[in-house]
Simulated assay, not measured.
Amino acid sequence: MLKSILKKSTALLLAVICTLSFTTSCSKSDKTESTGKPQVQIEMENGDKMVLELYPEYAPETVNNFVSLAESGFYDGLTFHRIVKGFMIQGGDPKGDGTGGSEKNIKGEFSGNGFEQNTLSHTRGVISMARSQDPNSASSQFFIVHADSAFLDGQYAAFGKLISGEDVLDKIADTPVEANPFSGEVSVPTEPVKIKTVKVLSK
């Protein structure tokens, strides 16, 4: 009888251990593991969302600038004003025509400007800073690469990458566009592609 009780107790104990192990493994798999890197979410006016992971190890000042602008609400209500399918989508201009920015310009953190630590390539989903001919003219405008564009490497400050929402990137890239009256580039959306908010998820 004692053996029978011991067997039952052992079986019960094993069942409890297995249940606890299963519960623990389930709870871990249900959570998105943090990489310790900053993450931001771009939510569009229609509810579509893109989440980007930012890489301060490549472009620290660029990341800090983008996070600061997002936290201040700077990007809320702005648009993707320049869209070239198979290349990139560009936004972050308060004027909405490619000529505006914030009150601050930052150093161009890319190798062509003497910043060798930025080796992040402009592959699909990478976010990078737009600028004028002046290498230190980046401000608030950014672009997300729609298709690999290695020719931009070393000339623009790439600083993060999409970790979810590539379907949203494709959807925005499919927006009907017309010619820019000044440059002739066919990249101006025929209808506003509006950002509802850019939210910092983690820093």
Rank of each mutant, 00 (worst) to 15 (best):
M1E: 05
M1F: 03
M1Q: 09
L2S: 06
L2A: 04
S4Q: 09
T10M: 09
A11W: 08
A15I: 10
V16W: 03
I17L: 15
C18M: 13
T23G: 01
T24V: 14
T24G: 04
S25V: 15
S29I: 15
S29N: 10
K31S: 14
P38Q: 06
Q39N: 15
V40K: 06
I42N: 06
E43C: 09
E45Q: 13
N46C: 09
N46T: 06
L52Y: 01
P56Y: 08
Y58D: 12
E61T: 07
T62I: 09
V63F: 09
V63W: 11
N64C: 02
N65D: 07
S68I: 03
S68G: 13
L69A: 11
L69Y: 11
A70C: 15
E71T: 09
F74A: 14
G77W: 06
L78H: 01
T79D: 12
F80C: 10
I83G: 09
K85Q: 14
K85A: 09
G86Q: 05
F87L: 11
I89Y: 09
G92R: 02
D93P: 06
P94H: 05
G96N: 03
D97V: 02
G100R: 00
G100N: 11
S102V: 13
E103Y: 07
K104G: 00
N105A: 07
I106N: 02
G114K: 05
T123A: 02
T123C: 05
R124H: 09
S128E: 07
M129P: 04
A130I: 06
S132P: 04
Q133E: 13
D134S: 13
D134W: 01
P135V: 01
A138V: 11
S140V: 08
S140Y: 05
Q141E: 14
F142S: 10
F143L: 02
F143Y: 14
A147W: 03
D148W: 08
S149E: 11
F151Y: 13
Y156E: 02
F159P: 11
G160K: 07
G160R: 03
L162S: 08
S164T: 14
G165H: 08
E166V: 10
V168K: 08
L169K: 14
D170H: 07
D170A: 10
K171G: 00
A173E: 01
T175I: 06
T175V: 03
V177I: 12
E178I: 03
E178S: 11
N180F: 03
F182E: 12
G184M: 01
E185L: 12
S187I: 01
V188Q: 01
T190I: 15
I195Q: 13
I195K: 14
T197H: 03
T197Y: 04
V198N: 06
K199N: 15
L201W: 06
